[in-house]
């Protein structure tokens, strides 16, 4: 099939917008738990009194 891109050049504005996307560099963003499990109302209340969770990862 012939390449018609030189005959029908693409819209330069559309191309500029396509190139404007931020860089592809994925990073995981896990969803956090904020609600106590259903039926664990007392657990939820007690959770407020527990000491803060200490993260295990390094800086």
């Amino acid at each position: 099939m012939n390449d018609l891109s030189t005959v029908f050049p693409s819209d330069p504005e559309a191309a500029a917008i396509d190139n404007a996307a931020p860089p592809e560099a994925p990073m995981a963003m896990p969803t956090q738990t904020l609600e106590a499990r259903k039926g664990r109302f007392v657990d939820g209340l007690v959770a407020a009194l527990r000491p803060a969770r200490q993260p295990s990862r390094g800086v």
Binding site: P22, P23, E24, A25, P26, M27, A28, M29
Partner: peptide
């Protein structure tokens, strides 16, 4: 944004 580009 972060999930697509955050590592940059």
């Amino acid at each position: 944004f972060i999930t697509r580009s955050g590592a940059a």
